[in-house]
Structures are given as C-alpha cells and as structure tokens.
Write a protein that binds this DNA or RNA. Structure first.
Lengths: 331, 331
DNA sequence: ATGAAAGCGCTAACAT
DNA sequence: ATGTTAGCGCTTTCAT
C-alpha cells in the first residue's frame, strides 16, 4: 500500500489541500461537515501525515534532542524518563542518543541530532571539548546541560556538584569514625563525574590527615560483577580496611556481595559506600551508604526549562538549578 | 548565530548549490580544488545540513523506529544497545519510543514514529491490537517484532517463546524435586510475556499433578523492592513452600533479599526462580535459578534483518528467528 | 566537472 | 469558510 499524501486525502474529500490540512489539525474555522468528510477520507486512506514536510514547512520540529553517555546504567534511563514525563502535553518529543562516554562520539551524535533541527538539546555534563561547545552554541537553540554542576555551563544547567558529593560523603564517613579507607573504581578517565567525586572525597580525607590506604581502578565500566571481583581481590591483600568507597552503587553492591561471600561483617567491620541511591541499594539485606541523587527530578526539571525557554525565548530565565544529594545508610 | 544553509555555503565558495551539495557528500565528480573551497566555507559557517530537507527530497530517512514498553527494566536498554550496535556502519539510525506497557500509548507512539517516515520499524512483542497491526502493515516498510515468538508475526519476528520458557523452567524445577510451589508476580495484565511464562509454568505443574500452592500478583510493575515485600508477606502466611517462581529476576532478587533477612536457606529450603539471566542474578552471593535470554543478540539480529530487508527489498528473507533461553542456577 | 529546473509534502501568508 | 501562491532546504534529473 503506497503512502497517501495530504493531496490525496483532499481530493478524496473534494476539498483543497489547505482545507484538508486545517481539518486534520483541528483548526477552528472549518465547517464541521467538511471536517467530517476530510477525517473520513484520511481514515479511509490510512493517512499518516509526513512530519518531515510539516517541520520543514513550519520551521519547527518540536523535537528535543537528548544525549546521555550510556543506557546500561539505570540512572540514565531514569533521567530520560523524567525528561519524557516533563515534556508530556507540551507537544514536544524527546529523541535520545548514546555517546558511550566517548567525547568524539558525543560530538558526532550531537551533530547528527542538530541536523534534525531540534527545538532544544539536553546533554550530559559540563565537560564537552571546545569544538562541541562551539557547535552547541552556534545551534541557536536552548542548550541544557544536566547531572553535573562543576564547570562552566553553555546556557542552562541542571545538576549537582559531584565534587561536593564526594566531599560530603567523606566527611560523613570520617565523622562516623572510619579511618582506613580504600577506593574501588572503574573507567574514571571516561566517567568524569565519578572522578570528581573521588577527588572531592580525597580532598576531605587529606584535610583529616587521612588517605586511601589502597585503591584499585579498572578501565572497564562499572558493574556489579566488577565491583565484586575488585573487592574480593582488594580484601585479600588489605584485609584491615574499615571503609570502601566506590564509583557508584552498582560497584558498591558487588562489593557487598563479595563481603557476604567472604563473611566480612558489613557495616560493623567494613562500611561500604557508593553513589546514586539506587532502588537496588535500599532493598539490599544489608545497608550500604550512598548519596541519593534526584535523577528523575533532574530530568523533569530539564524538561521544564526547555518548555519555558521555548515558550518565551526572550524572557530572562533562571539559568542554573542546583540539587543536593542526600546521604543515607550511615549509622 | 543564524543557521546557515547550503545556498549560503555555495555562495561563499562561489559555486552553485548543486556543486556544494556534491562536495559535502563526497560525490566523486567534483574537482578537489572546488571541494576544498566548499568544505572550508562550510566549516567557516558552522554549516550543519538540514536532514528534514535532505530526507524529504531524497525520500529516505535512514531512520529505524524502535518501540519498547519500558526503560526502567534494564532488559530493554540492552535490546536497544544491540540494535544500535547492529545498525552501526549502515548509515541507519535508531530512534526510540516508550509505550509504558500501554497498548493505546503504543499505538500513538507508532503513529508518531511512522510520521517521520522511518525506513523500518521494530516493535516489542506480537500482541498489538488489530488497529495497530493495520497501521504497521500499511506503513509499507519492514516491520520486525522482537522478544516474543508466541503469536502471529506481521512480517519479521525475532524472539523466544515465553510459554516454552515457563514450561522448561517448571520441568527443571519439578525434576529437581520441588513440590510446593508459589508464584509472585506483577503487572501481568500489562506484561503479557510474563503472563505467558506463568501460563506455561502452570501447564507443566498440572501435568505433574502439582499447582501453585499460593500466589500473589501485584498490579504495579516489577522491582526488587516489590519482590522483597511480596515474598516477606507470602512466607509469613505459607512458610512451607519449597520453590518460588517470579515474574523476572528483579522480583526474584527481591525475594532472595527477603529470604536473607528472614534467615530462610536458599536454595536448600526454598528455591528461587526468575527470568532473564541478568548480570545482577549471577553476581548474587546466593545462586537463584533463571532463564538466560539473549537480549543483546536479539537486538543485533533485529538490526541485521532490517539491513538485509532494506538492502534487498524484494529478496526472500528468513522471516522468523527463534532463540532458546538457557536455564541456569538449578543444582 | 558544474549548473538549472523541478519537486519532495506540507504550512504561512494572503486572498476571497 | 475555503482557496491560491510561495517557499521551507535539499536532492534528483537532465542539461551543458
């Protein structure tokens, strides 16, 4: 079955293209009788409007491009869900791209997405290289950078400070009396926000005359299995740690599982700390420490900024919205 | 900065639109000197081609629409990752939509996506209502239904039989000597594949003169927390079960955590069985039974079918590709 | 190797 | 309430 066009629908209804277009879009000034005929003709022909033509002609796509580093860590789908929910009812639609934590790929994907003429673009983090920044700036649409706060925003910024999150966690753990710290990480050269947390954490350790007694950083991405493996290894060589800080909750959960198998008492002997505040973490049979980040809300907030910026392009809007993660699991 | 057009690039390079277009796309018959001038002009103007115009004019978008029910269950991102990877290098690009396990929303999203004139469409499952099926059929593009096998495919089909997966799991558990079965589920009226697994499981139980001694089905979606809660409740009222079958691994993991807190020996006293074969499940300190489904490979396979169908639209292609889940964790 | 004309399917702007 | 004209930015086709 060939794709039918507006012209064919119009012909079938015995009206002009323009009238058919109006009827289909629900413009008020069409007689209800005519509208009926057009709708019926469209139905009859299984007509589906061509948005390429629509958007090219009307000069707006109502597309919101969103670029995240990964889909395999549940936090990003959660942000996306927040964005989608926040866009609901606005007539705008989110389109997602994955950069795989790769700056070059991110540049390419942003370029690709911009070629679809989105009405706004949401990207992850503030650490895009200069060339990408230039591209985003010259796109002439609202740019929202989400999830991080440590850096210079291009335009709008919704996120939290990962440096501070690391600091606060260290402060809380030191305050809880922990002294012999280890660090277990993954892909820090790519996951820059995780690196910022680690840096903040170390800074506070230093202020307290402490340091990481041992650290192990893998080059692959975070996963429960990796956290488990690295923890097993580390505890074999340095059994007297009393606190382990991880890239995130996935890694920390793996660490907890390792402890359970090894019979290490958590948190009495060893306190385990991650980041994110995943649902998984709070269901665990043993409590681990974590910083709860409002991922869905950040997505919803980014969507709200998009809507406001598009509804009133010349208005003066609040450019930065900061969130503070809440630390849980330390008793 | 206003968006620049091909015409402006051409003017800046002192050539016609057509020559500029050829140079930018790398058509062979352009003098390298001219090409240089055009590329430089484009660079200078931060030119980004307008794909709306490109696609409208050339009559192909190279878009592959993909509709999945959810993003909050990691299995779908995994399928998407497989699709994206399988499309790499083909010049085609995946675009994702989420139906929230809602047939009406799915219909709407498919309609929306079709209006972008994708070159192919991948949808989840075989249970679309008639109207949606009609829409897909009349789209005139390859349709690939993924993840399920139990039903009548519209066109291409890549998946596994969830009915059989349930049967096989029941067979294995009965074979392992389990007798007092319970079922813990969630949102079965929406997650039809989970319902098929349960039906297959019950069929085999019946063949063996057995049945679910107790079942608890919540109307919300699966999660670790929900599995934990339902399990705690069920074990309080029926403590003598020796096997619990769950919607999926998330629920089963919650069940395991409940058992750990209650001090119920897994699997000695109670065997816990899920579905999916998540990485999470294999990292658990205690082994649970599961059916490992090849999610990423199904995505890659769907992408392969898309490429083949588009490369050779009139060729005769294999229409159905079946996978068999592997059962693990039963000793 | 380069250019001119026509058109993809729709809507904005202006009639009537 | 309906129709006409022009044009969105690009590629296709046909010249040269």
């Amino acid at each position: 079955m060939r794709k039918s066009t507006l012209e064919e629908v119009a012909a079938a209804a015995g009206v002009s293209k323009m009238t058919a277009s109006r009827a289909l879009r629900g413009t008020p000034d069409v007689s209800s009788e005519t509208r009926q005929r057009v709708l019926q003709a469209a139905e009859q022909l299984s007509y589906i409007g061509n948005r390429l033509a629509l958007s090219l002609s009307s000069q707006r796509t109502n597309l919101v491009a969103v670029v995240v580093p990964s889909m395999s860590n549940i936090v990003f789908p959660e942000v996306l869900a927040g964005i989608s929910a926040g866009l609901e009812g606005s007539g705008m639609q989110a389109v997602f791209g994955i950069s795989d934590y790769d700056a070059a790929k991110e540049r390419e994907i942003i370029h690709d997405m911009l070629s679809w003429q989105p009405s706004a673009i949401i990207v992850t983090g503030l650490d895009q290289p200069e060339e990408t920044v230039r591209m985003l700036k010259s796109a002439g649409i609202p740019v929202i950078q989400v999830m991080d706060l440590d850096g210079d925003p291009i335009d709008f910024n919704v996120g939290l400070s990962h440096g501070r999150a690391g600091e606060e966690m260290a402060r809380a753990l030191v305050g809880a009396g922990r002294k012999r710290f280890g660090y277990i990480g993954s892909a820090l050269e790519r996951d820059l926000r995780a690196a910022k947390r680690k840096a903040g954490f170390e800074k506070v350790l230093k202020q307290n005359g402490l340091h990481f007694v041992e650290q192990q950083i893998d080059s692959t991405f975070s996963s429960i299995a990796l956290g488990k493996r690295l923890t097993t290894t580390m505890l074999a060589s340095v059994p007297d740690l009393d606190c382990l800080y991880y890239t995130n909750d996935d890694m920390a959960t793996g660490g907890l599982f390792a402890c359970m198998e090894l019979g290490v008492a958590v948190p009495e002997k060893l306190l385990i700390a991650g980041f994110n505040g995943l649902d998984l973490a709070s269901a665990l049979p043993v409590r681990i420490a974590t910083s709860r980040s409002p991922r869905r809300v950040m997505g919803e907030t980014a969507a709200r900024l998009v809507r406001e910026a598009i509804a009133d392009p010349d208005g003066s809007h609040q450019k930065t919205i900061a969130f503070t993660p809440e630390i849980t699991g330390i008793t």
